Simulated assay, not measured.
Amino acid sequence: MKKSLILLGLSLALFSCNNDKGTAASGFKTAYVDTSKLSKEYEAFKDLETQSKVKQEEMGRGLSAKEQQLRLDAASFQNEARAKGEQWAQVKMQELQERQRNLGIEQETIIKQLQEEFGAKNDSAVSKMKKYIKDYGKKNGYDYIYGSGDVATSIIYAKDGYDLTDEVLKGLNSEYKSSAPAKPAVAPAAEAEKK
């Protein structure tokens, strides 16, 4: 009798340890997704990063030219101040300081504009990713899908068999490619920078 109870207990222990793809002994089906990998390899995030860089370069060109001109004017100011006198120098110095303040304001405006535009687009991509994972979990019968990553980790350890990251990433990218409009052409400056 003791032997049969021990064998029954041992077989139950082996059965519960041999769960498939996240089915825990308690009956819950769990898995996790590496969110840092998703954020690096999800095509929507890659496209947003490329678009952001291109737009930042485009918006920064005019600002760059103004900054260069201000530097040239400031350098020539030294020589002209001696020739034209102190009163002229004070007026010119105020003008240069005002231009510098305006450039700072323009730069802050560009940064804010980029953050607003691409922050909203990034939030939208994150929402789509979360919805996809939620739908994936429902469709495949998961009770819980946890997130792991570099920043906010909710998993300390999990067997590799519980990792759904590659499956989710493949599905996300497939869904993104099928719903995304054709990629815009990359600006020549951005293309040259890649090389």
Rank of each mutant, 00 (worst) to 15 (best):
E80D: 13
V186F: 00
L164I: 10
N140M: 02
A192F: 01
I145E: 05
Y142D: 00
Y142V: 01
E117Q: 11
D34S: 06
I6W: 06
K29L: 09
K53C: 01
A120D: 11
Q115D: 15
L72G: 15
G119Q: 04
K84T: 09
K139A: 14
K131S: 14
E175G: 06
A44G: 01
E108H: 09
Q78C: 05
A24I: 12
L70W: 01
L10D: 04
E175H: 10
F15W: 13
M129Q: 06
G9Y: 13
L169A: 08
Q69H: 06
Y136E: 03
S76D: 15
L114D: 12
S76H: 11
E43H: 08
S179D: 10
S179K: 11
K3N: 11
D135Y: 06
I110Y: 09
K37H: 12
I110C: 07
D73K: 09
V151P: 06
Y32H: 11
L12S: 11
D160E: 10
E116W: 11
Q56L: 02
L38P: 01
V33C: 05
A65D: 13
G149E: 03
Y142P: 00
S39R: 14
E98C: 08
K92A: 10
A190T: 04
K138W: 00
A74R: 04
A24M: 12
G22N: 05
Y162I: 10
A89S: 09
G27A: 07
A89H: 04
L63T: 09
Y162N: 13
G9N: 12
I6G: 05
S76W: 07
N19R: 11
S64T: 10
K183S: 10
S36P: 04
V126F: 05
I105P: 04
A187R: 06
V91L: 12
N122R: 15
Y144T: 02
L5V: 14
G62I: 00
D166T: 10
K66Y: 03
A81R: 08
G22D: 06
Y142I: 03
A187M: 07
L5T: 11
A180I: 05
R101G: 09
S36A: 09
E167A: 15
K37V: 15
K66T: 02
K2C: 10
Q113D: 15
S179P: 04
F15Y: 14
E117Y: 03
P184M: 04
T50L: 08
S174F: 03
C17G: 14
A74G: 05
A189P: 05
L169C: 08
I110S: 03
K139F: 04
G119D: 09
